[in-house]
């Protein structure tokens, strides 16, 4: 019996199948590179959303022949991946959690890469009157006292960790308060939520600058030493997890602190935002930052 009545139908189906078979073979080819060539970089959304990694990674790949798989998540999740040996190298900004991570023997060789700063942003009407306050803790206290809406990341990211540390300084427990909302979203989306609801939030300057054009938020508090946002690169301990690409992780970490890369970081964003988004710090000590 005839399988198909219409030869055109057969032609269409075969064409469609070939199209996908062809596509699948492309996918196969893309994966055929030697496996130790792959490096999994777990990092924060801010380094990707700012566009910095889009500039740096192609240079690194060209120089070394490695293929970098950038997984942009919060710092908390990035370290959770490192803790299980599911990443080879981390680029994160949550110093207190990083220290614990190192003490547990999960990483080797934690090196300072760069910093920028956090800012407290809010509606230009500034209902809690925090504009111009020098201390970030003081500003949060004022917001709490006024009961003005505050949007928190609530996602264990580096920014969220910083925010929790600042609340701790104030002695206030914001969780569960009516004026305190946790979005559980990335920085960009949290800024949008704060803007729509006319609330305050803590943001990294890079993401704020990148999104500023669509936001109804002003920078209200900045320049406090407690608001430094410090990025470290951490190689994952290859002796603890044999599957980790330790050589690749080391190569990437070396690249991040190299003179050439630090030079690129220094000028990144100047053409687009008029000021750099990150300040290179390789070889410096954390205590000397922001002076």
């Amino acid at each position: 019996m005839k399988m198909f009545k219409n030869s055109k139908t057969v032609a269409v189906l075969i064409a469609a199948f070939l199209l996908f078979a062809l596509g699948a073979s492309d996918v196969l080819a893309a994966n055929a590179e030697p496996k130790q060539k792959n490096i999994i970089l777990a990092t924060t959304t801010s380094t990707q959303d700012s566009g910095l990694l889009d500039v740096l990674i192609p240079i690194f790949e060209k120089e070394t022949g490695y293929f970098v798989k950038t997984i942009a998540v919060g710092s908390g999740q990035a370290m959770a991946m490192g803790q299980k040996g599911e990443a080879d190298v981390l680029l994160v900004h949550s110093p207190d959690a990083e220290k614990k991570f190192m003490e547990a023997g999960n990483g080797v060789n934690r090196r300072l890469v760069m910093h920028n700063d956090f800012i407290i942003v809010g509606p230009s009407a500034d209902p809690a009157k925090i504009k111009g306050l020098k201390s970030s803790a003081e500003a949060l206290k004022t917001i709490a006292k006024a009961g003005a809406l505050f949007s928190s990341r609530g996602d264990n990211s580096g920014t969220h960790a910083k925010e929790k540390a600042l609340w701790k300084q104030t002695g206030i427990t914001p969780a569960g308060q009516k004026w305190y909302q946790e979005t559980g979203l990335g920085m960009g989306q949290t800024l949008n939520v704060a803007s729509e609801k006319k609330g305050y939030t803590l943001a990294d300057r890079g993401t704020y600058l990148a999104l500023k054009k669509n936001l109804g938020l002003d920078v209200l508090v900045e320049g406090d030493a407690a608001l430094l946002n410090i990025y470290h690169v951490i190689e994952i301990n290859g002796t603890k997890w044999p599957k980790v690409n330790a050589a690749g992780g080391r190569a990437f970490a070396d690249f991040m602190v190299s003179k050439k890369t630090q030079g690129i970081i220094k000028t990144f964003g100047v053409d687009k935002f008029g000021s750099p988004l990150f300040f290179p710090d390789a070889g410096k000590k954390v205590e000397d930052l922001g002076k």
């Binding site: 959304t45 959303d49 798989k69 942009a72 960009g188 949008n192 990148a210 999104l211």
Partner: peptide
């Protein structure tokens, strides 16, 4: 969502939304 490797239309949309 790796650039040029595993980024598809939906994941790129999420990322670009996050970037503003």
């Amino acid at each position: 969502n790796i650039k040029g490797y595993s980024r598809v239309l939906t994941t790129a949309t999420v990322m670009e939304t996050g970037k503003g």
